[in-house]
Each structure stands twice: as structure tokens, then as C-alpha cells.
Design a binder for these strands. Sequence first.
DNA 1: TCCAGCATGTAACCCGTTACATGATTAG
DNA 2: CTAATCATGTAACGGGTTACATGCTGGA
Lengths: 192, 192
Amino acid sequence: MAAVESTKQVSALGRALLSVLCRREATGYELSRAMSNSTDYFWTARHSQIYAELARLETAGLVRHTDIAAAGPRQSKRYAVTAAGRRSVLHWLRTEPEAHVDRDPVILRAHALWLLPPDEALEVLAGIEDASRERLTLYRSFERELDDDGQARTASHPDFGSWATVRAGIEFHQGRLRWCRDVRRRLQQEDG
Amino acid sequence: MAAVESTKQVSALGRALLSVLCRREATGYELSRAMSNSTDYFWTARHSQIYAELARLETAGLVRHTDIAAAGPRQSKRYAVTAAGRRSVLHWLRTEPEAHVDRDPVILRAHALWLLPPDEALEVLAGIEDASRERLTLYRSFERELDDDGQARTASHPDFGSWATVRAGIEFHQGRLRWCRDVRRRLQQEDG
DNA sequence: TCCAGCATGTAACCCGTTACATGATTAG
DNA sequence: CTAATCATGTAACGGGTTACATGCTGGA
């Protein structure tokens, strides 16, 4: 008798958690620390969501926990992917990429930018530019760390995944800066 | 006595709708046609959401409708921004840009890519690349149309806003293609 | 003493998607 | 005759954020 392989779909958050747990075992708290700041250009989630999703993954048989002693009042739960969990990640990687709708507030502003006088529009643009520059220096320092460590060059090492996401962040913000330059040029044509 | 200026915050969708209505009056149906496909790299929403949000904007006094004859059984409602609506858009444009968390499925895949053997990872990458190339040709044709029309050069013309969003889409996918190239190189280093 | 960090969890709420519902006109 | 398009709307549900709750340890 084959085990009942989760008929239910794993959510995107579930995949993100599994994908982290494929690297190393972790508690919900550790996962939430790693994912509640979006500084690593990967995936964000709050602890409230993570604890709930871990429970769901466990009933689906994709992760398993062992109780460990903890500093706080409660016991801590160390989660690990099961064989079925790893299989489900690999299966997902082999399926067609899902469509992505991005609702980016910068794009909203861009769409309404014509309503502002050019000099004010330039200010808005400068704000966007500053934010992207800041992100860029952050991601670049991450990339340097990963490159110095060397493991990110090995395609089968977890660091390769980290490098790939950080690189995507870099490329994104470089693109955004180029966009800022393009828009600025047109605004200045008008202004000058 | 000054009118009670909406104490409630306008949602992102609300701002998107106002920003379209600042260009031209429109019915809910027209708005939903314009926004239900994400082909113009601006903002997406379903009609169910749009009709509800328009009602909210109206009670907040930011838009106003006039009934018009329609093809269907119901009357159609043509919406227009009010002075307060236009003010609220301008006010928002002058506030600090909000942070954006993007949960991009491509990034999720990238993070887990090390789990696949290099040749399969290359296939995944090729799929991502194809999707971005397709988008790029679409957006480039939009940009050409806008540039041919000429109005997009005028910073105070609505087309300037369209051009800016389309340009952002182009820059985004160019960045993504560069990313694909970078990742592919590292994978091939491993492979070859 | 008081605050930060550890370590869970629950509940209320908002935003977005999917699906249900209605009914007229027009093109095939 | 049938399907698509016009043109609204409601309801159920899932994902995500914010806020509430608990209680221990270690440092300022």
C-alpha cells in the first residue's frame, strides 16, 4: 500500500518553508526570523502565518517535528522535511512556472506621475532612486560574502540558491535605476 | 463649513482606480476590462473587486457617477473623479513611497534550484527566460506605439504615465534576462 | 526594575480570487 | 438556437497583516 500522497496543493508559503527546511532543520521561530524581514530578497512571512503553515505541512506529512528544550516557557519544535516533503519540492520544481502578478506601488506612482509638475515628479523619482540604491549596496554586500565563501559556485550547494536570489535582487534594482534615469531624462527634456 | 475630507485611507486599488479616472471618465466595466489582464504592466483587479471599491470611493466622496443607458439589462454608471478625489491622488503622490514586498514565484524556484541536477536547472531557467522574452516583445511594441504617437514625450500628458509604466516593465524583464544569463553561466561552469 | 529576546500560538480584519447570478443584444 | 459580449452585483474562501496573549531568562 502506497502512502496517501498529499492530494491537497501546497501553498506558495508552504513551498518557501519546505525550500528552507531542505537546507537545514529549523524551529518556527528561526524560520520567522529568517523570513520576517525581506532583506534577503527571497520570501516574507510573519510568525503567525508560519506557525499555522508548519502545522498544515505536518498534517500533510511533508515535515515532522521533534520537541527540544527552549529558553522560553514553551517547548521548541525543531522541524525537518520528510522524504515526501522533499519529493513534493522536486515535483514542484519540475512543473510549469506559475504566472506572477506584481502590484508594485512604484508603478502606481509612475502611472499618475503626469499629474505632478515636472520638478515635483523629479523629487518623487529621486526618492525611488535612493531606495533602490540602498537595496543595491545591501545585496551587493551579500553577494560579496557568498562569493568570498566560495560555496555559491557549486550548483548543488544551498548557497547557490542564496546567490541566485540575491543576484535577482541586484538585477532588479539595477533595472529600476536605469528606469529612473530614463524617466528623469524625459522629464528634464520637458523642464529644460 | 469645510466638507469632511475622507478620514479613511484610500487602498492601493482605490488609488489605481482614481489614477485611471483622472485620465478619463469610465464605467466599472471599462475599468475592469482595462485592469483584469495584467498585460499593460500597471495594476490588476477583477470586476468583483472594482465594483466594490468604486462604491467605497463614492461614499468617501472621491468619485461620483451618472447613470447612462447601457446595452445590458442594468443601467451603466459612468464614474468621474471629484475635486476631492484629484486632491487625494496629488496628496498621495507627495507622500513617502510605501515599502513593497514582492513574492515572486521565480525567486522561490531560484532559491530551491540547487536541489535539481544542473541540466534540469537549466531547463527551468529556459522556461523563465522564454516568458520574459515574450513579455519584452509585447511591452516593446506598446512603447513603440506610444512613441509613434508622440504625446508620451509630454510630461503632463496621461500617455507619459503609460510610457513610464511600460518602460518599467521593459527594464524589469531586461534585468530578468540578464539574471538568467548569469545563473546559466554558473550552472554551465559546473556542467562543462 | 524594566526591557529585550526567546518561542509559541489565536483572532480579527483586509485584500484578492473564484464562482454564482441576472438578463439584454448581437453575431454566427 | 447558441454563444459571446455587455454590465452589473454578491458570496465564499484563502492568504497576509496586525494585534492580543503567555511566560521565562539575561542584561542595563
